[in-house]
Computed example of a mutant assay.
Amino acid sequence: MREDRIRQALDRCYEAVLAPGLWADALHELAQAFGGAAMMFYPYERDLSASDPRDPRRSLSKVPISHEYMEVVEEYERSRWYLNHYRAERGLPLMVAGRSVVIEHQLATDEERRRSRHYNDLYLRFGFPGYAMINVPMVDQSWCIPMLRANRQEHFNPEEAAYISRFVPQFRRLISLSDKLELEKARAATTGLDAVNAPAALIDWRGQVHSLNAGAEALLGPDLHLVRGVLAPADRRSNAALQAMIRNALRVDRTAVASMQPSSLIARRGGRPILAEVLPLSGIFCDLFNHAQILLLLTDLARLPVPREERLRVAFGLTLAEARLAVRLVAGTELRAAADELAVSYETARVRLRVIFQKTGTHRQGELVALLSRLAR
């Protein structure tokens, strides 16, 4: 292992943070620099009492992975090799306990490997007998970086494990940088939905809120709140339905949209409910490390759709004062009350309304509201 070669490969990984299409090549280069043949990123659950921490619950092909690892991972998922896997059963507790790098000889004896289906029918079948797992604990999500060695290479030894552990801070910075960049992308996406009056939440692979836009935050209150990062309606039936919908959306193949439960209602005391609709993310909207898995659209059924003032000004040439009056009328405010809110006389408001009728080609207030409401979508 040459340190200069490792650092050059790490530089390629930093470039891949900005250009995800480079990950496969960057990780291939990094694996070779560490004397390996393949490597990938793997999120793991630190709470070993949780429902089977070995089950990835989502496609591992979505995380950064080198070319050589892809075929192994496809078989790993297809045949459910992650169940009763000795490397996960024995390696994860060691990482949770604080071990920086775990190698194959710390997970099984030579005799156990001779009898292991996982070792013989999966890893030896693809020509990768050697193994090391690098532990990268983070605040929100801990990561394991598995690395394979091919038949022509020796097993990782304790001295090499100690050397590799020196680079854990580099991996932590790499993941942290990606987190920050992806968080900004997620915020930008949900903020854009604010512009079209669409409250939205990005939900990560654990079912927790990754980010909320301003519209969704405004819906939080006694009937809908965050509990340990999870959107939780106060109404028990609504909560059960919402969590079931989110779990279902996270588990199904993203292409199988038709099989998903697409919506549920969140009941509110003394008011109309909130409609929750789930949309799987893919392509550029799904971030690199799969923090954001689904988009949850929230519609307040008690709220009338109100267009933005700027949109009315552009569409109909309204002045700022006219647009402000029009927005209040669309929201259901009576003309006299709207005048009071705007601190103008009732007669001034009537004059402005007549101008608005003229500019929009309408003649009655109901006709005006029906027209302008269309711009609230």
Rank of each mutant, 00 (worst) to 15 (best):
D4K: 02
Q8V: 00
D11K: 06
R12T: 13
A16K: 10
L22R: 09
A24K: 12
L30H: 11
Q32W: 07
G35F: 09
G36H: 04
A37D: 09
F41D: 02
E45W: 02
D47Q: 14
S49G: 13
D52L: 13
P53L: 07
R57G: 06
L60D: 03
V63D: 02
P64E: 05
M70A: 00
V72H: 03
V72N: 03
E75G: 03
E77W: 04
R78G: 01
R80Y: 13
L83N: 12
L83K: 15
N84R: 15
R87N: 06
L94W: 03
L94H: 04
Q106I: 10
Q106T: 09
L107W: 05
A108K: 10
A108I: 04
E112P: 02
R114L: 04
H118M: 12
Y119E: 02
Y119T: 03
D121V: 03
D121Q: 06
D121T: 03
L122S: 07
L122T: 12
Y123R: 01
G127M: 01
F128S: 07
F128V: 09
N135L: 08
M138K: 11
Q141E: 11
A150Q: 00
I164L: 05
R166E: 02
F167G: 05
Q170Y: 08
R173S: 10
I175K: 04
L177R: 09
S178H: 01
D179V: 01
D179M: 00
K180L: 04
K180F: 05
L181D: 01
L181W: 06
R187Y: 04
A188R: 11
A189G: 00
T191E: 15
D194W: 11
A195T: 07
V196N: 03
V196A: 01
A200H: 10
A201H: 05
L202M: 13
L202P: 01
I203P: 00
R206S: 12
L212D: 11
N213K: 03
A214I: 08
A218D: 10
L219M: 12
L219A: 05
L219G: 01
G221H: 09
D223M: 07
L226H: 07
V230Y: 10
A234S: 15
D235S: 14
R236A: 15
R237T: 15
S238C: 14
A241Y: 12
A241M: 15
L242G: 11
M245W: 13
D253T: 10
D253Y: 12
D253H: 11
T255C: 02
A256K: 15
A258F: 08
A267H: 12
A267K: 12
R268L: 08
G271E: 14
P273G: 14
I274C: 08
A276N: 10
F285A: 05
C286S: 11
D300G: 02
L301K: 13
A302C: 07
L304V: 14
L304D: 11
L304M: 06
V306I: 09
E309N: 04
E309F: 00
R313D: 00
L320Q: 13
G332Y: 03
G332W: 04
E334P: 02
L335I: 15
E341T: 07
S345V: 06
Y346T: 12
E347Y: 08
E347T: 04
R352H: 06
R354G: 06
V355Y: 12
F357G: 08
Q358R: 13
T360I: 14
G361W: 09
Q365F: 06
A370T: 01
L372V: 02
R374D: 00
